[in-house]
Amino acid sequence: MLAGWAIGTASLLPSWRSDDALWDRAVRVSPTARALLNFGIATRKAGDLESAVSLFVRADAAAARSPHPSDIRHRVRAQLIWIETFGIPDVCSRLTVRPSCY
């Protein structure tokens, strides 16, 4: 059991290397809307706006499919408004469900 725990720790530790690694693993282990949203925020902070938009759109779609209520779709819209304002135009139209984020 000790060897198993040590291997588990060694495999889990690298996911704490950076925000990118953290949320990349989170999305792989549990591709929930919240994980996608956080991966998108980390990616936006790293300056990769195109990838961030893609993750936000996936987060929005996952949240739309979820039977559980959450604030994730509002938070996705806020992120896309930020990107549209300061970076890439017309990203809100990429959302799967209209009306737009405005």
């Binding site: 198993g4 725990w5 291997i7 889990l12 996911s15 953290l22 989170a26 549990s30 929930t32 919240r34």
Partner: peptide, 16 residues
């Protein structure tokens, strides 16, 4: 009881 996955900011929406 065994090696576990990532838990930070986990989505707990399944807890109805």
């Amino acid at each position: 009881v065994g090696p576990m996955g990532l838990s930070v900011d986990q989505d707990w929406a399944w807890i109805s």
